[in-house]
Design a protein around this nucleic acid. Sequence first.
DNA 1: CTAATGACGACAC
DNA 2: CGTGTCGCCATTA
Length: 117
Amino acid sequence: MAKSLNQTDFYSRVYKVVESIPSGRVTTYGAIAGYLGVKSGARMVGYALNQLIQLRTDKHYPAHRVVNRLGQLTGRGYFPDDTMRERLEQEGVTFTEEYTVDIQNHFWDPSEEENDG
DNA sequence: CTAATGACGACAC
DNA sequence: CGTGTCGCCATTA
């Protein structure tokens, strides 16, 4: 498994996991961080997602499927309008609050990446 | 190098 | 149960 995690590599892995998030599901920063090996790197995950905005690449990641451990759309402020919320809704994700998803019902674990890998 | 920030998380009161 | 504080690690100034 991953041993020496390069700084930039960490980002690449985050993007890879994020784009691997299935529709109608959501995951948390800590889950991704822990999955990558950096338990306390939850902040780095969120930071990595933020970088997506800077990337300015044609490729866009479903960063809207990433929420904090409470299911709050903390990053909604970085999305235009309520894109983050509407996106989740159209995918079938339920909400327990205006900007809080039912994470306990839609939580997705990165390790569930059912892939030959 | 030091200091400040952040799409987080856990603990203390 | 809500507020306040520290820890975490990379990025930025």
